[in-house]
Design a protein around this nucleic acid. Structure first.
Length: 571
RNA sequence: GGACCCGUCGCCUAGCACGGAUAGGGCUCCGGAUUUCUAAUCCGGCUGUCGUGGGUUCGAAUCCCACCGGGUCCGCCA
């Protein structure tokens, strides 16, 4: 029994299609599609054959329906201009549950693939706390990483730490010249909140203090000319802030396998190597150098890719190239998850690679921004919702719900449930939307606990666990008894899971799994309503339903896990 | 100005790369369901010019063209 029952069914259905086309004697090819649920598993629209056969589609469908169909199909039905391939319910149930049983807890995952994937995401500048606008990056990317792993690919999740540049130096200058009293108390006693106060105060001071401004300008100059001690000191500040950011991400369930520090690439000479390599390809303008990318579909300023200033110092573009050359050595496929504001930047990077004669290029997944009803989030204008605030609020709200629903539980247990419900609600609400669609952040939507939400999925999982707890030791059931319409609909969803995961991973479409999971949970709830498990009519049916609930539990758990959500035993 | 992205019930959203059967969900609102496995559930009802106009096709939310509205970018910043 294979790992992917749906793919196997589709393969058999494709063979039926081939047989139909042979019987009709057509050269025209028609596509097999998944059928509407009340019409079978797959269906074939015969309209494309009509022209070649010069016959009416219903007549063609009737002729096509005479072709025999293999197990577990029941046969072909002609309906108008369509031929539908229906499943024989008992055989279908046995087929699906057999597949699940063969993989057990790992059902949904595909065989290991050799292609190494390096997934870079978040990589937000280590100057302060993460806000909700940026939080879409880790939520989306972490789920993508989980789904890729489930689809069989070895994935390394990497954070590019930009501990280089003027912004970092300004912040460092603040920590050296300003006192905690001057910058004021942070909103939260956490490194990312503490250090951003220095950055904010420093930029404020430069507006009216010319001496201070000159001082930091001098520091930036020293930094850019390669002052090693200064570079290392600045990095220490970045490390502190990063620890705060990582703590927030950890609460979301997001972790990294590696970190790439930009300062390292400068100190160990990798950036200098890139400059030397680009020089022969470059044009010079006032002592600085750039690549001309105008033959790659770029126009105007966008076509001038400056990589070294007149004083010989590097630009972020140079370090970007150094970074991606390094990445290229460490993986087969590099995926970067980025805000849509980075689109042109990456077009330029890819063009630069081609100019260098490099065939390889990183792949990009872009997402649109999360904005507030009043407009764009802006740290400078103070119009932001920090990720930590959102999580705190979500968990507090979840806590109220738990207190209402489960007064029987201990305080500690209630807190645990509130945590995964609140955090899950936030993750799900962002993961469920197509990346390229912009999201307007509204509290009432982000904290939705019913309908299409994480708690809805988690609840279905807890329900399944509860039934299994009460069911006691497993008895052998007969899967061929699972012919109730709700059972068949549930089995159909379970069957599709491995394909859904693979398609989502390969298409980099995380939201597809969110939609699938919600659909699965809804169907499980309908099955729950119509099909008693513990009090099923016979031992054989009871055993089979217990097995179906267990299969549902595995799929719900793995779907939740793929989205980075906790699958609770109770809530 | 140019490039790229988005535009589907009152609100949010799926479907669009591979065109097919009455365009699925969720929220809101109204009305129901609990001697049975967790009611964060389920059922019923209301709600749609798929931005607009053309084109291709037996068939268009889906493909093509134009336009409208919104977003993002076009630094020797990162």
């Amino acid at each position: 029994m294979g790992h992917d029952p749906w793919a196997e069914l589709r393969e058999r259905a494709e063979a039926v299609r081939t047989a139909i086309e042979a019987r009709l004697g057509v050269r025209t090819h028609a596509d097999l599609v998944e059928a509407p649920e009340d019409k079978g598993l797959f269906s074939l629209a015969v309209f494309p054959y009509a022209k070649e056969l010069r016959k009416a589609p219903p007549a063609i469908a009737a002729e096509a329906a005479l072709v025999p169909a293999p197990e577990p199909f029941a046969g072909l039905q002609a309906v108008g201009g369509y031929v539908n391939l229906t499943a024989e319910p008992a055989a279908f149930a046995a087929h699906v549950l057999g597949s699940v049983a063969s993989l057990g807890e790992a059902y949904g995952s595909s065989p290991a693939q050799p292609m190494r994937i390096l997934l870079e995401h978040t990589s937000t500048n280590p100057t302060g706390p993460l806000h909700v606008g940026r939080a879409r990056n880790p939520i989306l990317a972490d789920a993508l990483g989980r789904l890729l792993k489930m689809a069989g690919y070895p994935v390394t999740r990497e954070y590019l730490v930009n501990d280089v540049g003027r912004q970092m130096v300004v912040q460092y200058w603040g920590t050296r010249h300003l006192t905690p009293a001057q910058v004021g108390p942070p909103d939260v006693d956490k490194a990312d909140y503490r250090f951003i106060k220095y950055y904010q105060k420093a930029t404020e001071i430069f507006e009216h203090d010319a001496a201070a401004k000159a001082d930091v300008a001098e520091m930036i100059r020293r930094f850019e000319l390669g002052d090693v001690a200064l570079t290392k000191d600045v990095r220490k500040v970045a490390e502190e802030v990063l620890s705060g950011i990582l703590a927030s991400l950890a609460r979301l369930g997001v972790a990294f396998d590696s970190f790439y520090w930009e300062s390292d690439s400068i100190l160990d000479g990798r950036v200098q190597e890139v400059i030397e390599r680009l020089m022969p390809l470059s044009h010079e303008e006032g002592g600085s150098h750039y690549l001309d990318l105008s033959s790659f579909g770029l126009e105007g300023d966008a076509a001038k890719y400056f990589f070294v200033r007149a004083d010989g110092t590097s630009l972020y573009t140079t370090r970007d190239i150094a970074y991606h050359l390094d990445k290229m050595r460490r993986c087969d496929v590099a995926i970067n998850v980025l805000g849509e504001d980075q689109k042109l930047t990456f077009d330029r990077l890819k063009a630069a690679f081609r100019l260098m004669g490099i065939e390889w290029a990183p792949e990009t997944v872009f997402y649109a921004f999360v904005s507030l009803p009043e407009g764009k989030m802006s740290t400078r204008r103070g119009v932001v919702v920090n990720l930590d605030d959102l999580l705190d609020e979500a968990v507090a709200r979840a806590g109220e719900e738990v207190a209402k629903r489960r007064p029987d539980l201990s305080e500690g247990r209630k807190r645990e449930i509130a945590e995964f419900v609140g955090v899950g609600a936030v993750r799900y609400n962002i993961a469920r939307v197509q990346a390229e669609k912009r999201i307007v952040f509204r509290w009432e939507e982000a904290l939705n606990f019913e309908g299409n939400s994480a708690p809805f999925l988690q609840y279905a999982h807890a329900r399944a666990c509860s039934i299994l707890d009460r069911a006691g030791p497993r008895t052998t059931g007969d899967p061929r008894l699972l012919v109730h319409p709700q059972e068949q609909l549930l089995l159909r969803r379970i069957a599709r899971f491995p394909s859904v995961v693979r398609d989502a991973a390969l298409g980099r479409r995380v939201h597809a799994v969110a939609g699938y999971a919600a659909d699965l949970a809804a169907q499980f709830n309908q099955f729950y309503r119509d099909c008693p498990v513990l009090n099923a009519g016979s031992e054989g049916l009871r055993g089979a339903r217990v097995e179906l609930v267990d299969a549902s539990r595995v799929v719900l758990r793995n779907a939740l896990d793929g989205l980075g959500l906790v699958a609770p035993r109770e809530m």
